[in-house]
Nucleic acid binder design. Sequence first.
DNA 1: CACATGTGCAACGCTTGAGTTGCACCCCAA
DNA 2: TTGGGGTGCAACTCAAGCGTTGCACATGTG
Lengths: 103, 103
Amino acid sequence: MTTLVPVFAALGDDTRWSILTALGAGDASASALADQLPISRQAIAKHLAVLQEVGLVEPVRVGREVRFRVVGAQLGATARQLDEIGRQWDRRLESIKRIAESL
Amino acid sequence: MTTLVPVFAALGDDTRWSILTALGAGDASASALADQLPISRQAIAKHLAVLQEVGLVEPVRVGREVRFRVVGAQLGATARQLDEIGRQWDRRLESIKRIAESL
DNA sequence: CACATGTGCAACGCTTGAGTTGCACCCCAA
DNA sequence: TTGGGGTGCAACTCAAGCGTTGCACATGTG
């Protein structure tokens, strides 16, 4: 498993979400994304590197360009881990409640 | 619903996770947390403000101190939203597959 | 009341990250 | 083979975030 915190850090940026949603319309290269977004190609390339680092995005070579696709499974996996953590906290609250009720 | 991105930004920091896990042992004030963690009380107070801002933590006045408790439900809600987004991407891939197969 | 503990506010230094520009390289297509 | 679009690397600016220190204020407790 990829460590969780860097994934959240990657998801905690509006520009990266705009990149992810743009990629939702289909795989695209950094240059293609630069045409749709109001920032430079290099800025996008850096964001793609961050997203790739945490497994949210995957490079696909097509001819001389590098297109990127969203890895939906990684989103799901992260969601499950986060949900599990939430459940642990709920269980902890349950324990506290049981203790309180037994007084 | 609180907007999603700031929640991820809040969760994308190791120090804040150490605060959250410390709070897992029970509600605590910024001063109490400062005894367990290697950073100053004010730094912790800022982190708690960030966490409270996105609803991950809740203040509880106890006498003259302000203790904080983790809102597990917010973690669960965020997880569900993230999972839903992941499913949308999967569905999109499904659509692409169906198109490809119909050629 | 007086003291001490907990909190809040403000200013500062430092690091990190986002975004930019410029340039070099690679590789497909005409 | 040559030109142009795509990519990668490097250096720079600028803003934001983390953490610190110092001080003022409040509020229980002795």
